[in-house]
């Protein structure tokens, strides 16, 4: 069993190359902004901005929209619930079933906002930034807090290592499961109790192995003189370039523009 987690879409686009620090901060700004407007015109303007981003990122639109799948059900429920329980005036009415017009409006706004929210973070981070870069960006963003005892370097280090070992451990779990079922362990047929017993025979070796791996890693790192983040240099340090400044400016402008539409026009 081999799998890749996440949906990073490898491409060589300007958006992919934007500094992860700018992307993390940018998506935070946009997320907050998304909760500050609700007029259809503003929503439309924001959607256009996202479409431009998709074009810049050179990611197929189908793929981007695919990230909405997990939330679609929730958005639909919200929409229907709002229509059924909203106040007057009615859009349509027959005995007890009444469809509310204001409910339709709030429902649509809610659902659309949720979708835009997800598209924003997916587009800025998950789809266009490798996990390692995200971890690096986070370390850099948190670095100023190190003097107050915040473990910025340690966090980034643990994140990279955890990510690196997810496929390894999943593969190992798979191997152990096969090994144990060849010895008669049973986890897909039989009663609940038999299955639970089968799973225990998997969990015990898996946890021992994870623990051993962790201790081996620590030993290996110290053998290579790892002693925390202080004074450690990077092979590819993050550099804030003009592209990144432009990106930040664009995000700020879009936020300002959308809020202007909402409140002034």
């Amino acid at each position: 069993m081999s799998f890749t987690i996440g949906n990073y879409y490898p491409a060589d686009s300007p958006l992919h190359r934007v500094d992860p620090r700018a992307k993390i901060l940018g998506s935070l700004v946009l997320m907050v902004t998304l909760f500050l407007f609700s007029r259809p015109v503003a929503m439309l303007a924001y959607t256009l901005f996202l479409l431009v981003l998709v074009a810049v990122a050179r990611i197929p639109l189908r793929l981007v929209l695919g990230t909405l799948r997990p939330i679609l059900m929730l958005a639909l429920i919200a929409l229907i619930a709002n229509i059924l329980t909203g106040p007057e005036p009615w859009l349509w009415q027959r005995s007890f079933l009444r469809l509310s017009l204001p409910g339709l409006e709030t429902g649509l706004t809610m659902a659309l906002r949720l979708c835009l929210l997800i598209l924003t973070t997916q587009l800025l981070l998950t789809l266009t930034t490798t996990p390692i870069l995200i971890a690096d960006g986070l370390e850099a963003l948190f670095a100023p807090f190190t003097r107050f005892g915040f473990p910025a370097h340690e966090l980034a280090m643990m994140m990279s290592i955890a990510l690196r070992f997810v496929p390894t451990l999943a593969e190992e779990a798979d191997k152990i499961m096969k090994a144990q079922s060849s010895r008669g362990a049973d986890y897909d047929t039989g009663g609940v109790l038999a299955r639970a017993r089968g799973l225990i025979s998997v969990l015990v070796p898996l946890f021992v192995s994870a623990l051993k791996r962790a201790d081996e890693l620590a030993t290996a790192m110290e053998a290579r003189c790892y002693r925390g983040g202080e004074g450690r240099t990077k092979l590819r340090p993050l550099v804030f370039r003009r592209r990144d400044a432009l990106f930040s400016l664009a995000v700020a402008l879009v936020a300002a523009f959308v809020l202007t539409i909402e409140h002034l026009l």
């Binding site: 987690i5 340690e154 280090m157 643990m158 994140m159 290592i161 955890a162 990510l163 690196r164 070992f165 997810v166 496929p167 390894t168 451990l169 999943a170 779990a173 898996l206 946890f207 994870a210 623990l211 791996r213 962790a214 201790d215 890693l217 620590a218 790192m221 110290e222 790892y226």
Partner: peptide, 16 residues
């Protein structure tokens, strides 16, 4: 270091 690696590996396990 040992604790860091233990945390990292168990995070990986929970993720997996």
């Amino acid at each position: 270091t040992r604790n860091m690696m233990r945390v990292a590996l168990f995070t990986a396990l929970i993720t997996a």
